[in-house]
Amino acid sequence: MRSELLRMAAVLMLMIGGLHAVAAVFAGIGAAGMAGVLPTVAAMIVAAGMLRGWRWLAWLAMLGVIVATGWVLGRLGAGPVPDVLHFLLLAAYAVFVALTFAGLWQGRSEPAGDRSEPVEIRQ
């Protein structure tokens, strides 16, 4: 991956997956079922894809996290998961969106100087 900001966002996504795993334990894995495990698996897939440099996945992940922020806000005060964990998720989501947006805003890095362009422009 060329952007260090996107790399940091990918590592943060792994931590978000860990927070979701802890939330699933509080909710009870048997009671939560796939709905408790699915965010953890999705976060790991997104982090792996972003570490491979898949910018399209970073765009989708950023949009998904914005939607997930609303879902977490709706869960405050409800259920067995402590609100502190929800606030940690909200903070991690906010930092992830900021890092991803900044990394995508930078664009791709320049190609290596020793490589020629595939098409030569003649004047």
Results as ranks from 00 to 15, higher is better:
W54V: 14
E117F: 13
R108E: 04
A102S: 13
E117L: 14
L51M: 15
G113S: 12
P39T: 03
R122E: 09
A102D: 08
S109Y: 02
I66W: 09
A35Q: 05
G79P: 06
I121Y: 03
H86P: 07
V65D: 00
E110V: 13
G33E: 03
G53F: 04
L19A: 15
V11M: 13
M62D: 07
V25I: 15
F26M: 11
A112T: 13
E120A: 14
L76N: 10
A27T: 05
I121D: 00
F101Y: 14
G77K: 07
L90A: 05
G36W: 00
G74D: 07
L60P: 00
I45G: 07
A92T: 07
G49L: 12
G107S: 05
L85P: 09
A43W: 01
Y93V: 01
L14Q: 10
A35W: 01
T100Y: 03
L63V: 08
V84P: 02
L12S: 05
V119E: 09
E117A: 15
A68C: 06
T100E: 01
A78C: 04
L76T: 12
A112G: 03
A27N: 08
W56Y: 05
R75M: 13
G70Q: 10
R55Y: 01
R108W: 00
G70A: 11
I45H: 03
G53L: 03
P111I: 05
G17T: 02
L14P: 00
A68L: 12
V81W: 08
E120N: 08
T40H: 06
F96V: 05
S109F: 04
A48W: 14
Q106L: 03
H20L: 12
F87K: 12
L99N: 02
L99H: 03
A42I: 11
A78T: 15
G74N: 12
A112E: 09
D114E: 09
V41L: 15
V41P: 03
A9Q: 04
A10D: 09
R122Q: 07
G74P: 09
M62I: 07
W71Y: 14
A94V: 07
W105C: 05
G33C: 04
L88C: 15
V22K: 15
G53D: 06
T40I: 06
G79D: 10
Y93T: 01
A47E: 07
G18A: 13
L89P: 04
G107V: 00
G30Q: 04
A112D: 09
A98C: 07
E110R: 13
G36M: 04
V41Q: 03
V25D: 02
G36Q: 04
A68K: 10
